[in-house]
Design a binder for these strands. Structure first.
Lengths: 356, 356
DNA sequence: CTGAAAGCGCTTACAG
DNA sequence: CTGAAAGCGCTTACAG
């Protein structure tokens, strides 16, 4: 039926449509280009893929035919025949994550530049679900896999990399055909804490992230390292658990306040928890930064417009997306990626104040 | 080469891997299932697709073989042969849009339920770029197209629908094989304004959205209608232009303040502008809602955690995504979708106060 | 109800 | 350097 419909459409409007429109609907095939250029389909394919040396005149004839007919190779057929689909599977935890959004955009743009398309799936912070997503992606014959902060174990991921190039973020992992892009969360945590210390704060509460996250532990280590470097004792009573959601940030502050802990500043392990913390403080009539200084981590787009604008550690998610995509492209080209993420920077805005 | 590698892998590890893993890598083909079940590939295909009546015993044999081998049909081959790829193109304006994120999630979940995958692309608020995205999507043989608030003209979209089922949001459009899902922005605008009026506000400023957006104009009409229903004259001096970004909201308020307009409340045509407005007010030492009441539109996830939590019109984006996806599925099944979006609701939080 | 065969649009050994 | 041919894994008229 699909075939019949297609023919009918062509019969009715075929002559009047120009090449570009026809190509968009995939009517122009490589075979037609070959016929128009007077060469075999094999030759057209080889020219298109740069797969072999071809005489100049044939190349010229083919180039001309491609342009005139507006030929666009069909990625589906390409995928079946050659095993390359020009698509890259991207597993993120939630397609609407405020944190990863920028990374997805970076991936989309970098990949699009060379004709690749991302296939986004959401793992929902669940290893089993993530494994299923990866299966789906493989069945769709993606050429590679980018895993943003996946929940799958290192071993499972390395196994996947045996048959598919993989780029991962959020973990340090070495394996063939796998490239890990790691952000220095320890340094970021240190920086945030150091900023508060430099302002004279001594009682700095820390709201932890999801303990299953490697990031979370590193940020906390940074917090502790900064404290100790300043000669302050680490006080467990100032550390309250969170799970990276706004609500957990709000509850953490309530717990802190209800526990009558003395503190003049709060370092939340991510911006979302900092927003929740800010709301809790607001509800208790505590002013940021007048009464309490507050810093976050990530530098979400919304951090600039929170009230007051949040001082935080900049996490270059957009750049991370771009780098992940270009590392993947390098892997696909048989090269060894070397790109590294830039070092963390602390962004001073309006949520902190000196104790003096 | 791809072929050789695959064989090598099979030779080395073939026997030890169980069916599920093998299927994930696409090693099990329909032909193998046919052989195992003692029927022809055609029959397997027909059973899988429910394309014809098949005797019970063959069906049982095939079902068993499919389960035992862990067969998963290859969508790529399916796409080439049958014209169905089980994938739906989704054009959004930005993959990381805080507004559309929820819709993307709704689409992903609803589609995933029946084995379809979304292919997300970003149109970047540009008709030409959007057209190119649609071409890419077609060359990838998507079975249908969901266009979230596209910038392409109605005529172009209807043309696309001649060869591909289309679901659009954000516009009222009738065409064959095209379904438009429309949110009542007029009513939403009316509701928001009415809330402010019911609190006693009489001088209500309005920050407009992007004028090229149909939504924007409807929300403004709602504002005006509510004013007039309350017997108040529409005052153009209270209407300031914005473009749906936070920054435009901030600047709008500055303009209002610098113009020395008297007002006690602000209705921003979306939440993002309301956040910008809140920041501008905060900078001018004006308190929300003490000095100025503020309402937004959309009910972004972040509205709950803004300070103070923003009263706003709930726009059911997640449900919109779900409905768009299921309408697409219905279109694909030859049915006529009838789903409608729920009516707007106003959510009272903490950013408004009575003038009494 | 079911099979053999052709075809979807490419790619890639295999032979010149 | 270039073609003819087989094949990727399915689907679907076409014949029983």
């Amino acid at each position: 039926m699909a075939r019949k419909t297609a023919n009918a459409t062509t019969a009715v409007t075929g002559r009047r449509r120009h090449a570009a429109a026809a190509a968009a609907e995939g009517k122009v095939t490589l075979e037609m280009v070959a016929a128009a250029a007077g060469v075999s389909p094999s030759t057209v394919s080889r020219i298109l893929n740069g797969t072999a040396v071809v005489s100049d005149d044939k190349r010229a004839a083919v180039d001309e035919a491609v342009a005139r007919l507006g030929f666009v190779p069909n990625p589906v057929a390409r995928g079946l025949a050659g095993g390359r689909t020009l698509s890259i599977g991207v597993v993120t935890q939630a397609i609407d994550s405020p944190f990863y959004g920028g990374a997805l955009r970076g991936i989309e743009e970098e990949l699009g530049r060379v004709g690749y398309s991302p296939l986004f799936v959401s793992g929902h912070w669940n290893a089993a679900h993530e494994a299923r997503c990866i299966d789906t992606l493989r069945s769709r014959r993606v050429d590679g896999l980018i895993v943003l902060d996946g929940r799958l174990g290192d071993a499972a991921l390395s196994a996947v990399a045996q048959s598919l190039p993989v780029v991962v973020t959020g973990r340090a992992l070495k394996a063939p055909a796998l490239y890990a892009l790691h952000f220095d969360n320890f340094e970021g945590g240190r920086l945030a804490t150091h900023h508060l210390l430099s302002l004279g704060h001594r009682r700095i509460a820390f709201i932890t992230g999801d303990p299953r996250h490697a990031d979370s532990k590193e940020r906390q280590r940074g917090y502790r390292a900064a404290l100790e470097a300043a000669g302050l004792a680490f006080d467990p009573a100032l550390v309250v658990p969170g799970n990276y959601t706004e609500d957990s940030g709000r509850m953490a502050v309530e717990r802190l306040l209800d526990g009558r802990q003395a503190f003049t500043a709060i370092f939340a392990a991510n911006d979302q928890m900092a927003f929740g913390a800010a709301l809790a403080l607001h509800r208790r009539r505590l002013h940021v930064p007048g009464d309490v200084s507050l810093v976050g981590f990530d530098d979400l787009q919304t951090a600039v417009y929170s009230i007051p604008p949040l001082s935080t550690v900049h996490h270059p998610v957009y750049g991370l997306g771009q780098l992940a995509a270009s590392a993947m492209l390098q892997l696909l080209a048989g090269e060894t990626p070397t790109a590294e993420l830039p070092a963390p920077r602390f962004i001073v805005r309006e949520s902190t104040r000196s104790t003096l």
